[in-house]
Structure formats: C-alpha cells, structure tokens
Design a protein around this nucleic acid. Structure first.
Lengths: 95, 95
DNA sequence: ACTACATATATAGTTTTTTATATATAACTT
DNA sequence: AAGTTATATATAAAAAACTATATATGTAGT
C-alpha cells in the first residue's frame, strides 16, 4: 500500500470528529471566523449545556476547534477556516 | 434551532462513511474519475477481499460511491468528483 | 453442469460512540 | 466567603461501528 497509514488515521480522526449532527451544526455556527461561548452555542442549538460542552471538547481534542477563556465564558472558534468547506462540500453532494 | 435536522443527519452520515482509514484510502484511489474493481482495490490497499467489499458497500450505501458491473468485475467510482476535496481539505488542516 | 474467479453477505465478538444525567470546577459578584 | 453564573468532567447504559472470518452468490469458461 503506497499510502501513509498515520496520515490516514489522523485524517479519519478529524473527519470522525466532525461527522455528527450536533458537531456539524457547531462548525456551521462558527463559520466565518466567528467566536462563540458555550452558552451562545447551546442556546442557539437548543441543546443541554453539558451536551454542548461535551461535543465542543471532542472538536477541540481532535484539532477542529480552539478556545479561549474570557472571564466566565469560554469562546470557541475554528482552528482552520477551511474546515467549514468540508460541510459545504458534503451539502453539495447530497443529491 | 434554525437548522434543518434532516440535512445535518444526512451530512453526518456521509461524513461518517468517509471517516475511516480504509475508506479514505479508497476515496483517494478513486480520485480523478478513476474506476476500479474490487480486486484492484483490495490488492492495492493490501487488505482482504471481504474487507474491501464491506467498506465499498458502506461507501456506496451512504452515497459516496457508485458501481457498475463489467462481466465478473464490479467497478467502483466516486459519485461526486468533489468528494475527494474533503480529504484534501482535512489533510491541509493537519497542523 | 462443473469449475474457477470475482464479489457480496452473514455472523459473532470486541471496541467505540452516543446519550442522558449527575456532579465538579472555575470565575465573577456582593 | 457565600452565592451565582459558566463551563467541564464523570458515569453508566444503550447503540453503533469495527474486525475477523466463514460462507454465499454471481459470472464466465469448459
């Protein structure tokens, strides 16, 4: 196999991180260089706080998001702007 | 939530389909409008035939690939050329 | 019809994700 | 320091995906 297994592994890790309805919705929210707190996100998506926090930490651990604390709040944002293209791409392919 | 749940679901289904090392390798192989038989694929990737067939059927069922029989062989190809961009995109984001 | 080659499906055991919920930590306010 | 708001983590049960392997089906050639 002429392919680097490690690269395949880490690519699939990142894709798996995004491949969940709530996490796709989060990436969509943060598209356009937006930064949002956990509260903003869980209220906009109408989900439990702990659920939002849980998915945010998955996205952060897998290198999709970054976060910065601002007082009581914690703002999340896309690590790479480019990442929202993945969702746009999939959307276009939903024949 | 101002977002269509069905669209999120089906987008995540398609992403989940791709988010696996072997399946990423398959999509990579088929990039550039290539059509390949199961035999070509499992030999190139150095995996079992049944494993290749299994992953190919996942990719087909989730709308990533199409296939056409040609005698004894079955050729698989990307349903949307665009889909290989997803992997290129993820690769670029592996900081 | 028999054989060989190509592909698909089935099964079972294991591991990962998911989901829901409870609880803990952290920072600010008074 | 006690209360309040914001966020994170822990736990456990259920669902889904993964892996390996066995077997079945489909197609062509003799």
């Amino acid at each position: 196999m002429a392919i680097d297994l490690n690269k395949l592994e880490s690519a699939s890790e990142m894709l798996k991180a995004i491949a969940h309805p709530i996490r796709i919705a989060i990436v969509n929210l943060l598209d356009g260089n937006k930064k949002m707190s956990v509260t903003e996100i869980f209220q906009l998506l109408n989900i439990e706080q702990a659920v939002a926090s849980h998915h945010l930490s998955i996205l952060k651990n897998k290198g999709v998001l970054l976060s910065e604390r601002k007082g009581k709040n914690c703002n999340y944002y896309l690590k790479h702007q480019r990442l929202s293209q993945i969702i746009a791409c999939v959307d276009k392919c939903q024949s």
